[in-house]
Design a protein around this nucleic acid. Structure first.
Length: 480
RNA sequence: GGCGCGUUCGUCUAGCGGUUAGGACACGGCCCUCUCAAGGCUGAAACACGGGUUCGAUUCCCGUACGCGCUACCA
């Protein structure tokens, strides 16, 4: 593979939020650039004025940044091949459309959208393939001049050869052959003067010296048109790599309504960028061995297009949750607290002692899939009085043996020093020695009295974090 | 409909002619443990189908089926 002067681009259109499929495309582009010491370019494809969404570009940039994807060139950082926003490059597209026109490789089409729609409907009614009938391709010089003189709006269409075939090599799929008969005379320049994707991406990829076009599989069929355009313009085409699609659980193209598709959605829920990126990286790529956990820099080292698969991958939210739990657990305590903080504020948990907060959160790190899960475990610390939840628990607490354990526990606890998890557990062992009560019968009543729960992290640690006074009060409250 | 691309456990995937078809998520069991979680061990679970080629096909070729994508003055 040609790997000198690698230049790749991620070219989203600002029509809303960053799609997780877009995130993966961006990621693979960036990884490929890093791997080969190349350059990643970010280009905004905003040539459809009717789909422009306010703030979409800003949101896109913010989200890519959050995900940890950096581009060497782009709208904010600039670069030698700017501008990097297509709406600011219209003169360039226009010039190339004119050139194609002058060279007889394109023609003006005066058909109105209404006419085209009507024609299309007619063809469908006649059960024919809806294609442009190319009526304007045959227009004479005179006719064209007349129409232009009357100010009739027109588009510029590519003059696709009527017969023949086009072949190109795809780095992921191999040779792809398309018969030109199947290709419409594609519109290159719209009547509003803006280019279509097809013209703009070819012109820009060439002028921005893009070496590899890595994009979604939905572009595979139109790549033939692009290859033809490179030919028309006398340019060498870049190398192509079409990535398999991300799918819904029903295997249709990943979309809204079947779950979250915006990176923002996952960010809002508290997914860590490292986890999302790692997960999405594994959707279509693998290192060739059993490893699954990769940091960005490891991915940069290991990534290769050769190891990208051909099949669409279902976006499995469960697996993503697993990745997130892995990363959450591996987080340094301070960062774990930071991640949980937004959700902790509303619980009433006393965070005045940062060290205690850190220890409480860390104690639960193995219980968290999302940072918001921490709230489920904080009530142990925030409730004023423990409520024994059910009849089974109540009878456990009320048992004569339990009452014995409680009394002994309070006696020992009052003089226990230091009040640490280890010492508290030793203290409980002492109760075992004194009373002969052990195991579940020993711990469960205490756990219930202290936390109001049957399950939870190490009881000694919880008791330490709760503080002696609270613990003694709670146990006392259960004495009958 | 036409064209293109694809098809290994439910899901993500390894495999690049000869394997007990491997791993991960999810699911079940066991161990650890005061409990739960985590962790360890373990179980169930897949080569879409039919023809070739070959001594031998999950792997190569053809076809069928199915799926997805594209078929806009959207990207």
């Amino acid at each position: 593979m040609e790997t000198e002067n690698v230049r790749v681009r991620f070219a989203p259109s600002p029509t809303g939020f960053l799609h997780v499929g877009g995130l993966r495309t961006a990621l693979y582009n960036v990884l490929f650039a890093r791997k080969h010491g190349g350059t990643a370019v970010l280009r905004i494809e905003d040539t459809d004025r009717s789909r422009y969404v306010e703030g979409a570009v800003e949101n896109l940039l913010r989200t890519l940044e959050w995900a940890g994807l950096r581009f060497e060139e782009g709208p904010m950082q600039g670069g030698a091949y700017g501008p990097y926003v297509q709406s600011e490059r219209t003169a360039l597209y226009r010039a190339h459309a004119d050139r194609l026109l002058a060279e007889g490789k394109a023609y003006r089409c005066f058909c109105t959208p209404e006419e085209l729609a009507a024609s299309r409907e007619r063809q469908i009614a006649e059960k024919k393939d809806p294609t442009y009938d190319r009526r304007c391709r045959a227009l004479g010089e005179g006719e064209i001049r007349v129409k232009r003189d009357t100010g009739m709006p027109f588009t510029v269409r590519m003059k696709v050869p009527l017969v023949g075939q086009l072949q190109f090599h795809d780095l992921i799929r191999g040779e792809v052959t398309v018969h030109t008969e199947a290709i419409d005379d594609q519109v290159l320049l719209k009547s509003d003067g803006f280019p279509t994707y097809h013209l703009a991406n070819v012109v820009d990829d060439h002028h921005m010296r893009i070496s590899h076009v890595i994009r979604g599989e939905e572009w595979l069929p139109s790549t033939a048109k692009h290859v033809l355009l490179y030919e028309f313009l006398g340019w060498e085409a870049p190398l192509f790599a079409h990535l398999p699609l991300l799918l819904n659980p029903d295997r249709s193209k990943l979309s809204k309504r079947q779950g979250d598709v915006a990176v923002e959605d996952y960010r809002r829920k508290g997914f860590l960028p490292e986890a999302l990126v790692n997960f999405v990286a594994m959707l279509g790529w693998n290192p060739g061995d059993d490893r699954e956990l990769f940091t960005m820099s490891e991915l940069e080292k290991e990534f290769s297009l050769e190891r990208v698969g051909k099949t669409g991958a279902v976006f499995d939210g469960e697996k993503l949750r697993w990745f997130n739990a892995q990363y959450l657990r591996a987080l340094p305590p301070d960062r774990l607290v930071e991640a949980c903080l937004p959700w902790m504020r509303e619980t009433g948990f006393d965070m005045s002692d940062p060290q205690r907060t850190r220890r409480v959160v860390s104690a639960h790190c193995n219980y968290l899939t999302l940072p918001s899960d921490i709230t489920e475990y904080l009530s142990v610390f925030t409730q004023n009085a423990v409520v024994i939840p059910d009849a089974e628990s109540r009878s456990m607490v009320e048992a004569a043996e339990s009452q014995l354990v409680f009394r002994r526990f309070i006696e020992l606890a009052q003089s226990q020093d230091p009040w640490t998890g280890e010492e508290i557990k030793a203290l409980i062992k002492t109760i075992q020695k004194d009373t002969g009560i052990k195991g579940k019968l020993l711990f469960m009543p205490l756990r219930l009295a202290i936390t109001g729960e049957q399950h939870g992290p190490d009881l000694g640690m919880i008791a330490e974090l709760l503080g002696r006074e609270t613990v003694i009060n709670r146990v006392e409250a259960q004495i009958r």
